[in-house]
Amino acid sequence: MNMPILKSDVRPAIPAVPAKAATVLPLNVPRTSFTRNRLVPALAAVAKRTIPPIIMLGLLLTVWQILCAKPGATLPAPSQIWIDARDLIVDPFFVVGPQDIGLGLRVLTSLQRVAVGFGLAAVVGVLLGAIVGQSLWATRGLDPIFQVLRTVPPLAWLPLSLAAFRDSRPSAIFVIFITSIWPIIINTAVGVRNIPQDYRNVAQVLRLNHLEFFWKIMVPSAAPYIFTGLRIGIGLSWLAIVAAEMLTGGVGIGFFIWDAWNSSRLPDIVVALAYIGVVGFLLDRLVAGIATMVTRGTAAN
């Protein structure tokens, strides 16, 4: 139906225009819509987030290289680190001897201690926080004590715990425990105190017992606060493990730094710092990720 009309009405325009449009469009449209329209924006989004940090990192390394490459510089330049500590950077999991192992393995040892210490702190902290938040008397009695104790630096606990446990392993774990427990207690208590009266009324009408109230009302309602405490706690415990291991020894990442300092292996220390930073960041992300998973729906009302 269209062709005769076109032919008869617009004769001079036909030979040039339809021929071009017909050949160009069908070839291009499917390709762009299926591959580029989806893949390219996705890659662009990734690039938008990854390229700026890479550029900044490159700039920082360049400045560092320029500053430390001069003769007489006290700290090693990145190029020097790459040459001296290549085995540490390239393979995190090598095992040569009992004290000569990759940094990944050392980090895992440290993480084990953090897991035990922080795990204990999480359980005890949430329980204590629940009690403190629930009881006005306990709040008045314990809150000032917690506020004072939480300011004590991690390492200040170490001599006491060494005296108490007479062994370095439990001492390090205790230092992590005692460092990370305060924000967990305090945040849980605030969360419990902020449970809306409505939910308490519901619990009362249903006659929930203490255990049911704890699991069905208190934990879900206070979850956002609890996870804030856990996030601060995991950060602090990672700070504490490195410091504690420097003094107690063993195969952890903290002791590695101390050992490297004693044998003047500065490049190794820099690599270890990068490891510690990345692992600390991942730990924080991990707890934050669990928090968003668990507290989905809790905040919205």
Partner: peptide, 26 residues
């Protein structure tokens, strides 16, 4: 308080982390 005198509260007081079914089921 007790379940023999159930209250419908002014502001519904449903637990936001439970589904509709779970709120009643509780």
């Amino acid at each position: 308080p007790g379940p023999d005198r159930a209250v419908v509260f002014q502001n519904h007081s449903l637990l936001p982390w439970l589904t509709v079914y779970d709120n009643v089921r509780l």
